[in-house]
Write a protein that binds this DNA or RNA. Sequence first.
DNA 1: CCATGCTTTCCTGCTT
DNA 2: TAAGCAGGAAAGCATG
Length: 367
Amino acid sequence: MASVYGIGSILTDVMRSVYQTEENQAGCPNSREHCSNSTLLSTDLLGTSSWLQLDPRLWSRLQVLEWLAYHVEKHKYDANNIDLSLCDMDGATLWGLSGNQLVVIFGPLGEELYRSLHSLNRASLDLTMGEDFNDIFLQGILGEESDEKLLDTVITWNELVNEEPTVDWKALSDFQLSDPGYESAPTSPDSIGSSNAGSLVSQAPNSPDSGGSESDTETTNAQYNSSNEEFRKISLSNCKPLKRGRGRPRKVTCEERTCLEGRKSKHSPRGTHLWEFIRDILLRPETNTGLLKWEDRSEGIFKFLKSEAVAQLWGEKKKNSSMTYEKLSRAMRYYYKREILERVDGRRLVYKFGKNSSGWKLGDLRA
DNA sequence: CCATGCTTTCCTGCTT
DNA sequence: TAAGCAGGAAAGCATG
């Protein structure tokens, strides 16, 4: 059993190995830490590391190890509790892991690692994008139960195929990076989905909620959605909603309701609002494939280019296949009163963010 | 259980 | 004529 401080030498070896690999692959890149192994190991571990200055998702494998070593040292954590074979990942992969996954891998230290990772990211993003963006990113980390199941699944699969019980980081990464709650919500086969081709989520008709109110239900979503149409057919025959004059009829049939009942979030933070959904499509070019465009970026004026497609995406997000632009626009009009949106008279499909909206201004993103 | 906020649905009338 | 807009009414649903 290695001593508490044994992690130093163990990680040193791993880091040296990674360092050599990276150096061989990319030469000796730009920074001091890549050019002086001894310097890196002696000083960077504790406090002045290159990882500290970077968004964690941009970390190299080496920087991930630096970061790990720093926390192991800092918390005098027993290195024997860590399977170093699981530490070989870059920052993007690391970022994709949920808190539970980090605990599974790193034991009690996982919690601290998770906090550290995301506080670092918050600090980094605060410099560049503003709080709203941070919230969006952080909200994507909430689907822990399903993540844990996925982790189990991946490990079990590897064991089944007689490999070392290592984690398929690529699979985990793909899942996580495409799963971050609301971040990846806008996915549909004919619009945004193409930009996410290959991800697990992009192939599913729905996507999680930014606020987490749905994010912990994703494990069951695919199951639910795959049988959704069947539920509809069955329910039409024996559980029709009662007729009424005006107002909102039941959206979910009784079977669907039964199916969904186990999916409620225990602690749903604020859900995603429509205006935030719209805003984030506008702000994220990779998901905005001709759906919306800025008419006047500085004034917050934007236009629907594919109104029905946006409505479909909103419907997907809200698990509502009957969403239309007409309904969506009604919700948009309610924002006028709350001054989240302002009217743009005489222009069809054009809206303007109001003073009670946030996160879209260029100043917000830079502040 | 209740109040509240945020939609969602339906509707009528109007405008483009 | 179709599509979109405006806004009232009523209901669903999550949350506190």
